[in-house]
Design a binder for these strands. Structure first.
Lengths: 218, 218
DNA sequence: CTTGTAATAGACTATCAGTCATGATGAATG
DNA sequence: CATTCATCATGACTGATAGTCTATTACAAG
């Protein structure tokens, strides 16, 4: 997103640019915080700018609307989430295993990163439409799995939506009934989703029980 | 929903009651239409009352807020949907078969009843929270299936959410790419969801291919 | 130091949710 | 049939919030 320097241009970034970036980031951080707190997009722009300690008018220097801010905030959160999964799945090439790892890490967000989990349940299935989110990557995995004959599901997008629904359901149950969801429950969901994708049951069980790599804190 | 007549009461319903009911219904119909059009709850109350050809102030004689109206509209649509599935599943007792029928009829809504389909995709997973909706029934089916040893999924609520996600995904794909979803695709989703629930693959394929009863127009 | 540009900021306007007082409709009663 | 009363319908009113506009401030360049 950084503006390209003009062809013959100078280094093209200092102070002013940093100030601008700082303001923008303050707004995004405030939005992430508010969403995670469950205030969803019900927070007023005044509330947001106040939380970001920024003048009201500044908001519109960076975003055209509240929705646009929340979209940017969503992309940021999903980006971190994606990196977390990338780290955990480094070296894995089997699409089914990749899918299992992604599912299990996401399900664990409920207690490892409640803020992200809250964010996801707050946005619902709309999270699938967020560009740069995890959806494109998961979609790629599913399609790769189909191409490799590992999955037999007919439509990748539908399967993705089902997987997202399952994960969101799990996170929601966790929020509403703390303690009812544990690692075993997450692994069982991953197993069930693999079966949905057409992986034979015994193989699904095996994939959902593999050791899970460390993810780090972010 | 008709008001019960008081015990010793007269017929207790005329003109005034009908007028009231008509106004209320006009508002609900307008809301259903707007949601199906994808305007979601972004429609202003003025827009709604205008679409219903009702005075602005009348709105608050019937509903406390826009959310309440949308909830009533949702219950109405889901009620019709539920009755449609009830008719189609009369005489079926196997939970797995019931689930398959419900899934396949719902998936077919995309072309048999685009208004309901639009409504469902418009509300997203929140449809699961609508009281009186189909969720409680589907949940019951899933739990019955677990009790009968027919399903092996650990948490019924999570499974329900995954199923809803799959169906919503299918309906969304149908809306965005008309013609990409046909009856075979719906049946394959039903099959996949049965596998997710723990039904052995061959049995899932059989259940998803059974003859589907006529549902009637409503 | 001067000048120009880009970001900040809060006062201003339009729109929307929700309230309230008034008017219209029809039921009950003599 | 006329009168009275209750209930619903209605749109003008109020407070709040999204989004605009212009003055001010911070910085960079010469």
């Amino acid at each position: 997103m950084a503006e390209a320097a003009s062809a013959a241009g100078a280094p093209r970034a200092s102070r002013l640019d940093r100030r601008k970036a700082r303001t923008r980031q303050a707004l995004i951080d405030a939005a992430v915080r508010l969403i995670a707190e469950g205030r969803g997009d019900r927070a007023s722009i005044q509330e947001i700018t106040e939380a970001a300690d920024v003048g009201f008018g500044s908001f519109y220097n960076h975003f055209d609307s509240k929705e646009q801010l929340f979209q940017a905030a969503a992309e940021e959160v999903l980006e971190r989430w994606g990196q977390m999964i990338d780290r955990a799945s480094a070296g894995i090439s089997d699409p089914a295993e990749l899918f299992a790892v992604g599912t299990r890490i996401t399900g664990r967000l409920g207690w490892t990163h409640p803020d992200i989990a809250g964010f996801l349940t707050g946005t619902g299935l709309d999270a699938l439409d967020i560009p740069g989110g995890l959806a494109p990557r998961a979609l790629r995995d599913i399609q790769a799995g189909r191409a490799a004959g590992r999955f037999s599901v007919p439509d990748a997008e539908i399967a993705l939506s089902a997987a997202a629904g399952g994960l969101l359901g799990l996170l929601r149950v966790h929020q509403r009934h703390p303690g009812r969801i544990d690692e075993a429950a997450v692994d069982q969901l991953a197993e069930a989703l693999l079966r949905l994708l057409g992986v034979p049951a015994p193989e699904a069980a095996r994939l959902a029980a593999l050791g899970l790599p460390e993810t780090g804190n972010w």
